[in-house]
Simulated scan of single mutants.
Amino acid sequence: MDIEILSERENPLLKRREIVLRVVHSEGSTPTRKSVLERLAAIKDSKPGLVVIRKMNSIFGKRESIAHARIYESEERMRQVENPHIVKRNVPSEQKEAS
């Protein structure tokens, strides 16, 4: 799986970075949100708990997907801004057990 960042924008009002990325998955099926989230966190030097994959759509006929992600400065800010179902979808499993 290769990740190419198409655009990145700083949003100081909401204290986050908004990223549009292309995920190329040459072998196998579409990667999971968790694997894309972890790879993006590693690329952007952030904690996986602060990264939210807002949406991820596969492109018909190609082995690539377009994803919209947000990287927050703090977990508290993420929970204030994002909808609860989006937060639940993106929180790593070890954090779910601790909550």
Rank of each mutant, 00 (worst) to 15 (best):
A67F: 05
N90H: 04
A98H: 12
V20F: 04
S93T: 14
R39N: 13
S65R: 06
L13W: 05
R22E: 10
E82M: 03
I71K: 09
S35N: 02
N57W: 10
E18M: 03
R54C: 01
S58L: 05
V36Y: 05
V81W: 03
G28C: 09
Q95E: 15
M56Y: 12
I3T: 07
Q80S: 09
A42D: 12
S7I: 00
P84R: 09
R63F: 09
P48T: 02
E76Y: 12
F60Y: 12
L6P: 00
L50S: 02
T32R: 11
G61N: 01
D45T: 08
N57T: 11
E73H: 13
R70V: 09
V23L: 06
V81G: 00
E4I: 11
R77S: 04
E94P: 02
I53N: 03
I3Y: 14
I53V: 15
R70T: 10
K88G: 02
R54L: 10
S7N: 13
E10Y: 08
N83M: 13
I66C: 08
Q95C: 07
S29C: 05
D2C: 00
E73P: 01
K34Y: 07
K47L: 11
V36C: 04
M78K: 05
R79Y: 07
D2P: 00
I66E: 11
N83I: 07
L37Y: 00
Q95K: 15
I19P: 05
Q95V: 04
E38L: 08
E97V: 15
I86V: 15
N57R: 13
R22C: 07
P31A: 11
K55W: 15
E27L: 12
N11Q: 10
R17Y: 07
N90S: 09
P84D: 09
I5G: 12
V51Y: 08
D45K: 15
A67H: 02
R33W: 05
E73D: 14
V24W: 07
R9L: 08
I53G: 06
G28I: 07
V24F: 12
M1A: 05
F60Q: 13
D45H: 13
R63D: 09
I86A: 13
L40D: 00
E64R: 11
I71M: 10
R79A: 12
L50G: 02
S58F: 01
S74Y: 06
G61L: 05
P84N: 06
I43S: 02
H68K: 09
A42K: 15
P84S: 05
R9E: 14
M56D: 10
F60H: 11
L14E: 06
E27R: 12
L37C: 06
E4F: 08
S26N: 13
I5E: 14
E76A: 14
H68I: 02
